[in-house]
């Protein structure tokens, strides 16, 4: 007799995820102040692929809008969504805590402080990939997680994951206190800092895509390869160890990978909250709780979710934009509560 009942990623789910990403991307590319049809965008993209030629009907201006404005923004949104959702799912797995999100170990507070210092000292204005602000945010996020990690492990020989979480809370409030103080002393930049903190994709360019892409690819490979090990970790450290896994080492590798990915995402898009929690949990409720399902689908649906949110943010009160962090919570929270209430599965 062969075991028949187990949870696995079904190819059709992957397909649905990929189709959702492509569909939202197509709609996002065509909608905006300049009206460009989906069909002509598809021709335009095929035309730019090597070895293929079509009769692209786009004018030079429209072609520039697609290539220099909308496409980098759509791709960046997808990458940020995929990265934050995957990092959230990873933190939830290694800490066995459903409330864990990518900012758990202080990444948000560290990035916020780095960006605030950059903006109030006018080292940069927060736009462009070579600007000082994203680099400071990236450094701040990584530094905060590193401080949390060493504080959480020192003096606690049992190295319990809970002490790490508590250290994260302490480091985050400490850094937020400094950030608030700096901001209060420089009231003229409050608006700029606030805009950065709420998250945005409106300054997206190819430079930011290239900045995030290597981190997104590298860390997601590391995390996805460990998907089965992360299921073993759900049994707790003692049992994982008796099954031949080294839980401390696995947790360290996963935290480093997820934090690098989060820091890179935060650097290019600001603090976009909520994605790291609602996307993985929605996947768990709809498809299954195994990390072999949750991790890959979180990436795909995280990407399409973020692209949808950005589309809504830039079109509903066009020509002005709603900050993306506002919409993730405004649309995401009711949807998540609906999924939570209508599901028969427990979290």
């Amino acid at each position: 007799m062969v075991l028949a009942n187990y949870e696995r990623l079904r190819p059709v789910w992957l397909l649905v995820g990929i189709v959702s990403v492509l569909a939202v991307a197509a709609v996002s590319l065509s909608l905006g102040p300049a009206n460009i049809s989906v069909g002509s965008i598809i021709y335009e993209i095929i035309d730019r692929l090597p070895l293929l030629k079509t009769n692209t009907e786009l004018s030079e201006i429209h072609s520039n809008i697609v290539w220099e404005v909308r496409l980098p923004r759509v791709i960046l949104g997808g990458l940020v969504g995929a990265t934050l959702a995957l990092s959230g799912a990873t933190y939830q797995a290694v800490f066995r805590n459903p409330l864990a999100d990518p900012y758990l170990l202080g990444a948000a507070a560290g990035a916020g402080l780095g960006a605030t210092l950059g903006l109030v000292n006018r080292w940069g204005d927060g736009s462009g990939a070579t600007d000082a602000v994203p680099l400071l945010a990236f450094g701040g996020a990584l530094l905060a997680v590193a401080i949390t990690y060493f504080m959480g492990l020192r003096g606690d020989s049992s190295r319990s994951p809970a002490s790490l979480l508590l250290a994260g809370v302490a480091v985050a409030s400490f850094l937020t206190a400094i950030q608030t103080f700096v901001l209060q002393q420089n009231a003229d930049t409050i608006r700029q800092v606030y805009t950065w903190i709420l998250g945005r994709l409106n300054t997206a360019s190819w430079g930011e895509v290239w900045l995030l892409l290597p981190y997104a690819i590298g860390t997601s490979c590391v995390i996805l390869l460990n998907r089965r090990i992360l299921d073993v970790m759900r049994l707790g450290d003692a049992e994982a160890a008796s099954l031949g896994i080294r839980p401390d080492r696995t947790r360290k590798i996963m935290v480093v990978a997820a934090s690098l990915a989060t820091a890179a995402a935060v650097a290019v898009s600001g603090l976009i909250s909520f994605v790291g929690i609602i996307v993985p949990h929605t996947i768990r409720i709809l498809f299954g709780s195994s990390n072999r399902i949750v991790l890959p689908l979180s990436m795909l649906f995280g990407a399409s979710f973020m692209m949808t949110v950005d589309l809504v943010g830039r079109t509903v009160i066009s020509p002005s934009e709603i900050p993306i962090g506002v919409i993730t919570a405004f649309c995401g929270a009711p949807f998540f509560i609906f999924v939570l209430r209508s599901s028969r599965r427990s979290i």
């Binding site: 075991l3 009942n5 187990y6 949870e7 073993v232 049994l235 099954l243 031949g244 896994i245 979290i347």
Partner: peptide, 21 residues
């Protein structure tokens, strides 16, 4: 033991094969 409540029993037992995978 710590029991992940939303894991299927089949998957739970299958984790016992970990040292051989």
């Amino acid at each position: 033991p710590i029991v992940p409540l939303d894991m299927l029993a089949g998957d739970y037992v299958l984790l016992g094969r970990t040292p051989h995978i």
